[in-house]
Simulated assay, not measured.
Amino acid sequence: MTTHPAARALRATPEGLLWEPSERWVRGTAGDVTVVDSRHPVLVWEPRLPVPQYAFPREEVRTDLLRPARHPPAGGHTGATVFYDLEAGGGVRPNAAWTFPAGDLAGHVAFEWFRRTDTGLDHWYEEEEEIFVHPRDPHTRVDAVPSSRHVRVEIDGTVVADTRAPVLLFETSLPIRYYVPRGDVRLDLLDATDHSTRCPYKGTAASYWSWRGGAAVPPNIVWSYPDPLPAVAAIRGRLAFFNEVVDLTVDGERLRRPVTPFSASLGV
C-alpha cells in the first residue's frame, strides 16, 4: 500500500501526537498584549482530534506572563506535562497554556486557540489574516468552484431552492456543499435567526435561517457568508443547506443524506 506523502511527512511522539513544522508567521493576543509572536510554529495533532493546534518555541512566547496553573485539569491535552495560567488582558486566564514532555516537542508551549469562557487568547493571526476556531490544516483543501449543475433542494417535500448556477464547495473529508444564488431560494419559506459561526477556511457565516414549516427539522440549517475569506470569494452572499437534513437532487439524481461530524449536533 502506498503511503500518502503528507502522512509520511508527519512525525510522531511516544504519546501519540503527530506534528510537523510550519513556515507561517503566527501571533496570538490577549487584550492589547501580544503573547505569541512566532516564525517557527509547529502544528500538532492530538489523537482523536481531527483538527491541529499550534505549539511555539518558548523563546517566541511571553513566558513572563505564564504562571504554574493553580488548578490544572485532570485530563487535559494529550502529552501535556505542565499547565500554565496566563496573566494578561486584564485578568488571569486559567490553563491557557501547556508544555510537552522531553523529546521532539520539548521546549514548546501550546495555547488554547480561542477564548473559551475565561481561558485562551482573544485573537490569532497567520501573517496578516485573522484566523478563527483552529489553525488551518495544510492537508485540507477548500475549493469554491462555479458550476452549471442543476441543483434542487427540498425540505419535507417542498422545493426551497432550484438553480442552474450553484457554486460547489469542495472541502476535504466533507460532502460537497452547494451554494445557491439568493434569488433561487424561497426565502419566504425560511426565518432568519441571530445564529452565526466561524470557520478558519471560509470566515464568518453571519446569516442563518431556519425552516418555517411544521416538520421536525432542526433550526439553522441554511447559512450564508456575506464576506467570506478571499480564497472562497465565489460563495459570497449565496445560501447553502446542510445536506444531512435536506433532500438534494443534482442533475436529476437524488443524493443520499451523508453522515458527517455535524450530524450529531443536528440530531440526525
Rank of each mutant, 00 (worst) to 15 (best):
D227S: 14
W113G: 10
V151F: 07
D247A: 12
E129G: 02
V44K: 01
M1H: 11
P41T: 02
H108D: 05
W98M: 04
V222A: 14
E253N: 03
T163S: 15
L65E: 08
A7W: 03
A110P: 01
A96N: 05
W211C: 04
R236W: 08
F100M: 04
P226E: 10
S224E: 14
R58L: 10
R152G: 03
S224P: 02
P57N: 01
A240E: 05
V35Q: 03
G203Q: 03
V180H: 10
A205T: 01
P52A: 12
A74K: 10
R186V: 06
L255D: 07
L187V: 14
P72Y: 09
L168Y: 11
D188P: 13
V133N: 03
T193G: 03
S38P: 10
T158F: 10
D64G: 12
W45C: 06
V246A: 08
D191V: 13
H108A: 00
V160E: 07
R238Y: 06
A80G: 15
P14C: 11
W25T: 09
E46P: 07
L229T: 00
G91T: 14
G213R: 08
R257N: 09
L169A: 09
R70N: 04
H77G: 01
S207I: 15
H40R: 15
E60F: 00
D184H: 07
L10V: 06
E128I: 05
